[in-house]
């Protein structure tokens, strides 16, 4: 698949039409993360217009977007920029470009749910600090949280952990393009 076709697919999946954007910049103006982004939301739309998929996939924007939706909410043409950013993030991960700490955290988070069915905050933070090589991040808060019983060793495990683990595996397979192409394109709708 060429970059051109890939971009078209991302746009279709995100339900975004690049020429709806007339580059007014209201999205970047209201984006709380814009300061830290190397390609601001308006820039993402510009790259989509000129077909520069590579710049989008290699930007830190797709990893720093918080998904707060301020840009889409304020857009005079209802361009859903965060939906496009999300699709771009999936594509970057498929190409192995996701090396941001955000991916480390999200993977640890899902592993956590797979194991317990619910999020175990202490384990997640601990796992993340180790994997991302940030041993002292947030550690100053730990004594208070342990003392006040806000976090603890005991996981809040649910009964159906096996069901959840299988659910996660099925969902991940569903998103895998190799598996998806083998599936019927027109789903049978149950009555």
């Amino acid at each position: 698949m060429t970059d051109h076709e890939t971009l078209a697919r991302l746009m279709a999946d995100a339900d975004v039409r690049q020429y709806d954007c007339y580059q007014c910049g209201k999205c970047s103006g209201g984006c709380p993360m814009a300061d830290a982004m190397d390609l601001k939301p308006r820039g993402v739309m510009r790259c989509a217009q000129i077909g520069s998929l590579g710049r989008i996939l290699n930007s830190n924007t797709i990893w720093l977007c918080t998904g707060c939706g301020a840009c889409a909410d304020r857009c005079p043409h209802d361009v859903n920029v965060p939906a496009l950013i999300e699709e771009a993030r999936y594509e970057a991960a498929r190409r192995g470009l996701g090396r941001h700490d955000s991916e480390v955290l999200n993977k640890a988070f899902v592993a956590n749910i797979k194991a317990f069915g619910r999020n175990h905050e202490m384990l997640l933070a601990g796992l993340y600090n180790v994997l991302a090589l940030k041993p002292i991040q947030d550690m100053a808060s730990v004594p208070h949280m342990l003392k006040k019983n806000l976090i603890g060793i005991k996981p809040n495990r649910i009964g159906a952990t096996r069901e959840i683990a299988e659910l996660i595996e099925r969902a991940e397979k569903w998103d895998d393009p190799m598996v998806a192409t083998g599936r019927s394109q027109t789903p049978e709708v149950k009555k």
Binding site: T66, G67, E86, R89, Y90, A93, S102, E103, L105, N106, K107, F109, V110, N112, I113, G117, R118, N119, I158, G159, A160, I164, L167, I168, R170, A171, E172, W174, D175
Partner: peptide, 25 residues
């Protein structure tokens, strides 16, 4: 009964199907 994590801000950033399935259960 036996509710599970909704995936919060993490699951949907990895997989759109998971981002819908976890809260749907």
């Amino acid at each position: 009964e036996d509710w599970n994590c909704c995936g919060a801000t993490s699951a949907h950033t990895l997989s759109s199907a998971l981002g819908l399935a976890l809260p749907a259960r």
